[in-house]
Design a protein around this nucleic acid. Structure first.
Lengths: 202, 202
DNA sequence: TCAATAGATATATTTATATGTATCAAAAAA
DNA sequence: TTTTTTGATACATATAAATATATCTATTGA
């Protein structure tokens, strides 16, 4: 028996079971007899394409013909889509927290000094960065910006540090633009402002 | 006839033609009659799975069952694989180099310590990342992995750093898998100064 | 213990693919 | 033009899937 058919059968069976469907239930949904499904799952039958597609569709799967050289990438996508949540590394979590802290600080100070356009610019960049979490560098750049703003709060004449941060942000934004990732596709990462903060950096 | 079957048929036909194969040539390669191929390409027949797989394999294609929610990402990957190489920025080129270096180091050390499964895992991830070049973060994560491995070479007891890298890689891969890569992003990159809508430079 | 549901099989019939061979028109190459 | 190749069909038969119905065993729940 074709090992590739076996593979398809296994995938289908796994999908069915992961959805908690019995062979009869799936059969009803897909318009295929239970007996037929049983036979296919056990490699006892060489399904017709229409049957396969009917089954796949009932299981929210789509048939794709994938060029050999990109199958690893595709398999990788499929596998991680089966994973429940996206786990982030500590590094990424820390970066995320730094970004959130920055946004809070910005919110705060902008209320006090709404006329300072650099603050608005920083805020705009920070909002952009939310969508690019996967590609963000370490926390330092955000922490520095945070400090710059806090300093500015005390010494309203001194915009230098803020402008430095702005330049850094601009540069980062440019870099990120080279790797555009559809924000819609980014998994439901918790809203920026509701993150649990175990931070301690300031 | 099922539009999904039509779709498969079209894909197969396109693949055959792009390889410059006649129906007879393909038939010989796949062990399928020319008449059968003609009928299938015209939607006049409901192929059996074994025949479909034979044809696909002869065309360097693989059958995959893709969860609906990630089909856009998969389609995107497939499409970009059909495109010629993309010109990359210096940043991306550097990242690419770091990735290649990492793979070399891995190759090297894996020969010395083939029993360490973490190395194999890192290699697997690294291979995956090749497909996602446009969306990779900066070089650091790869350089760190590289260092971790070099360290491990001297101190074979110490797997901690390698495990850290592994966690980072896993996380990155998850992100990448969820991130639909807009094919548009592979086209010419906008110059940095046009990125933001309304601000002049501070 | 009894009832319900699960998956694996069995059988008979219908239907369609698979196979093999062959032909035909159109397009491409000689 | 002539020859060759290509893709679309036609028709035979063999084979296997699809369909429908039913049974069996094991498991799960009441």
């Amino acid at each position: 028996m074709h090992y590739e058919i076996e593979n398809v059968a296994k995938t289908l069976k796994a999908a069915r079971e992961s959805k908690g469907l019995s062979q009869r239930a799936l059969g009803k949904k897909a318009g295929v007899l239970q007996a037929q499904i049983s036979k296919f799952e056990n490699g006892a039958v060489d399904l017709r394409l229409s049957s396969l597609i009917a089954l796949a569709r009932a299981l929210d799967l789509e048939l794709a013909l994938v060029p050999r050289k990109v199958t690893p990438a595709v398999q990788s996508i499929i596998k991680s889509s089966e994973r429940p949540a996206v786990t982030r590394s500590d590094e990424q979590r820390r970066t995320q927290n730094a970004l959130v802290n920055l946004q809070k600080t910005l919110d705060n100070v902008t209320k006090l000094k709404p006329e300072v356009k650099e603050l608005a610019q920083l805020a705009r960049y920070a909002r952009d960065f939310e969508r690019f979490q996967i590609a963000l560098p370490d926390t330092k750049i955000f922490q520095n910006a945070n400090k710059a703003i806090e300093q500015f709060k005390k010494d309203a004449e001194n915009l230098n540090k803020i402008r430095d941060s702005l330049a850094q942000f601009e540069s980062l934004r440019n870099k990120l633009a080279h790797a555009y990732i559809d924000p819609e596709a980014l998994k439901p990462i918790r809203p920026a402002y509701n993150l649990d903060e175990d931070d301690g950096d300031g």
